[in-house]
Amino acid sequence: MTRWERFKDNDIVWSFLSSPGAMIAAAITVISILACLFAPLIAPFDPFDPSQISLWDGKLPPAWSDGGQPQYLLGTDNQGRDMLSTILYGGRLSILVGLAAVCLGMVLGVTLGVISGYVGGVTDAVIMRIADVQLTIPGILLAILINGVGRAFLPLELRQEFAVYVVIIAIGLTDWPQFARVARGATMVEANKEYVQAARIIGLPAWLIMIRHVLPNTLRPVLVIATIGLALAIIAEATLSFLGQGIPPTTPSLGTLIRVGNEYLFSGLWWITFFPAIALVVLVFAVNLLGDWMRDALNPKLR
């Protein structure tokens, strides 16, 4: 067997290759992530470079409609920035914030979850109680509250500069209980297996067993939660920004773009809010589909 055939023989890869929905979703996700990450190379204009923006070109409709200009494929916004470029740069920020928030939630949640599952007893009870209580409050409300409180603690002049970090922390702190629950469940299963007992008998310290032996075996389910969490985090960031509580308009994310465009909706300039909204929905939908497929493929109970 060649290496490729062996690779194809893997059950997860097989499930992926036989599910057209998953392949389309993965393709859209990968393309949009790449397009956004390499925005500076792909985008026809740099929306942050004042020398490339001209107010005379403001509020132009998409290229295919009356009055559109071919160099501005999706039209321009009120300040004359090219919509396509702004969306690519905005999407980049949205994805980066989403990834950072999920990573924060994942590190926090998995750490607490593994400790909780491995140590047990009072530690477990306390951590899981906190997670339970937090789970009863809808994530988006908690993110709005933490974000609002976080902004309030910052002095006025630093608020714009640190807005991105406040958003990441707010979303990350709302995310962790999901990760903690899953990691704890997986840890409790692993902790009773023979290889962990063997490691304990040869006298390895608990932290080493947790990191080297238990942690790697909890990562499968965590990955599923992380994918679905990424979609939720992107929505949460967009929502915060739309409410005017997130990323400031100087470096817009998709949510900020939709918020700004929304003010021009009544004057018929639909494209300023429509295209960023479509970009956001497609991105979230693709990530969601990918997460759905992963949940089915990685969960042996459902196969």
């Binding site: 967009a238 909706l265 956001l280």
Partner: peptide, 14 residues
């Protein structure tokens, strides 16, 4: 499920 609330709102308003 994939549509954020505020986008549904904007679409309905429009």
């Amino acid at each position: 499920v994939s549509l954020p609330t505020f986008i549904i709102g904007i679409a309905l308003i429009y």
